[in-house]
Design a protein around this nucleic acid. Structure first.
Lengths: 366, 366
DNA sequence: TTGTAAGCGTTATCAA
DNA sequence: TTGATAACGCTTACAA
């Protein structure tokens, strides 16, 4: 079926060179090691070694080889190399959502480090769907990526696919939404402390009844953040019944309606802690459908990496994760693991990078 | 500032790993075609053909092979395959900015299509930097990706690197920020008409002096959008001198100051058309540093794919590009090109997908 | 219908 | 210091 991809009939290498020189910029593709070697009247192995700066090759030869390689625009075939060396120079990033500042920043952080080391980034979006996540993971079982950085979907409770991946020996790092059952390194923010502080802040601002908005109880971040919230409520001496845990879904409109109903209910909250950004935004939308005013009738604080939290009305008090740094740290660790020959496995540990709370109008009485 | 967080070592790491390795079903990784064939007492070629559903293989053999492949968890080595077939099943996406709803949506659209066809996505962020763009493109010269979808950086004026890529025969599609000099297919929105309409809308709302905010004059979108704006101004019978073209930069704070100075100047505009979202946001920030009120003193319309344009204060009138669709269309075209054996080259054409204007409070007198 | 063998472009081993 | 050769895992003529 698919014909051999050779573009030039391999007639004579000198001719090839002339062609290249005669048509500057025209189809100077497909020079491989063998052809480059022929042009230099050297063996492929010598040329390979020269290009890889082997100690066995004389400086003079190296110079000649490199200059000819540049002249002919030689580019090593990455697949031949991957096949031979059993590594892809590629890292896979698996996230639940692409239209999300937090994840975008993390990926920027990862790329910032990996690019310096010649790694490429495959990016996959699970759309918060476990089935998609499983498919994606199964695609990564065959060595296409040297390592994986991921944040699990909110649907993920069965983690057998991740266990399998890990057991295969693929270096795997979790960030934000982690899988504590998988013995590897995880990067998170200080979820407990942040929500504890955030809740306390709401209480200090006079809130008597605070609702906690979450995506899914399965999520590691939900659990930790919920804990921080509950402990702060308890610490304030409020009864446990004043805890109001609202589980939202993936459908934005439904979430808005759910929150609106909550806000119109008898026993409505006067404070909200949104455990993820999108639920804060849904709350803003919901409030617009009521007569409530923020922050007077309702105060809100949310995890968020929006750059425009200050432009919302009222401006949003945020718990901001150091997303870029988290990405960088994940990448640094992986690079270390991948580039040292006999590096031990990634430690089963959780590394915490603290978030920063920025108080804005949404929690401060006008 | 963001110091290293606490580390919580988990003690039983080593033990756990060993346990896993002792599990009978675990670590069945690395089963290759040869081993699978040996297990089946068949030749590798037969197994390969069976797995690829070749007509030459009996139904019975196929069944046996497939079931054994599943049992042993056989995963073909993608690099061996890529090397052999001279294709990577990978598409590269090159964008100038990752923390950007428009580009994120486009990538989601691309992924939506390519995933169905078994393609993987390498994503690269140029950070609006031509030099980075050139480096990235040079990395894609060696066949690592079967095709490239890209939007150029705002610094890109010399396009020799893109010409070279195209001449190498790598299928290349531009979207949004295109290179008209490269004879391939481009997807854009109706930039001219949208800005024409947008400007007219501002004029209808009573604006007498409208400023046009742009990133770089080199950008294709800048040129087209500027044209639409200028023509609308002229059509309204205003002098050309009432055109106010403001070239912004990559530094957000500088942009805010630039716009604030503009708003405080003698001859300040009463309307703004922001050719990209970030400049609209910079304008909102700038306005906060003045005593001006929107929309009364200043009306603004902007290209934007923010989902929360309605939550800004005032809510932002937007020109929204069909980003997801654009991504899908790029991908569909590429898939067609890549999967048909002798598909002709991508046509040198510009395909336009219309944007949608949503009028909100930022342009409607209170 | 199945098997044998060549080859994709590298790198590594061994020999010269 | 350099060259010949094998090997990575797969697909596909060609043979049987």
């Amino acid at each position: 079926m698919s014909g051999r991809g050779r573009i030039f009939p391999n007639l004579c290498n000198l001719k090839l060179t002339r062609q290249i020189q005669n048509y500057p910029g025209a189809m100077n593709s497909g020079v491989n090691l063998k052809e480059l070697a022929a042009e230099l009247k050297l063996s492929p192995s010598t040329v390979s070694r020269a290009l890889n700066d082997s100690y066995e090759i004389s400086a003079e030869t190296k110079k000649k080889v490199i200059s000819m390689a540049e002249k002919l625009n030689y580019q090593p075939n990455p697949f031949a190399r991957s096949l031979r060396e059993n590594k892809s120079k590629t890292i896979a990033v698996v996230i639940p959502e692409r239209i999300n500042n937090f994840f975008a920043q993390v990926i920027d952080g990862i790329e910032h480090i990996t690019q310096q080391h010649g790694y490429h980034l495959l990016v996959y979006n699970t759309h918060e769907d476990v089935d998609k996540e499983k498919k994606i993971i199964s695609l990564l079982l065959n060595g296409r990526a040297d390592a994986i950085v991921m944040s699990v979907s909110s649907q993920t409770s069965d983690v057998s696919h991740l266990e399998r991946l890990h057991e295969r020996g693929v270096p795997l790092i979790f960030f934000d939404r982690i899988c504590s059952g998988i013995p590897t390194t995880k990067f998170i923010t200080n979820d407990y402390e942040s929500t504890f502080e955030g809740t306390r802040h709401l209480l200090q601002q006079g809130c008597k009844k605070i609702a906690f908005l979450m995506l899914s109880k399965e999520l590691s971040i939900t659990k930790e953040r919920l804990r921080g919230y509950q402990d702060a409520i308890r610490e304030a001496g409020l009864e446990s019944e004043s805890c109001l845990n609202i589980t939202c879904c993936q459908n934005e409109e439904k979430n808005i309606e759910l929150i609106r109903d909550l806000l119109l209910s008898e026993n409505r909250p006067d404070g909200i802690l949104a455990s993820v950004e999108k639920l804060a935004l849904a709350t803003y939308q919901a409030v617009k459908r009521t007569n409530l005013r923020m922050p007077d009738d309702l105060k809100i604080i949310s995890f968020s990496n929006m750059n425009i939290a200050g432009l919302l009305n009222p401006s949003l008090t945020t718990i901001t994760q150091p997303a870029f740094t988290i990405g960088e740290e994940c990448a640094k660790l992986l690079i270390r693991k991948l580039t040292r020959p006999k590096q031990p496995d990634l430690l089963n540990q959780v590394i915490t990078v603290p978030s920063k709370i920025t108080i804005r109008s949404s929690t401060v009485a006008g």
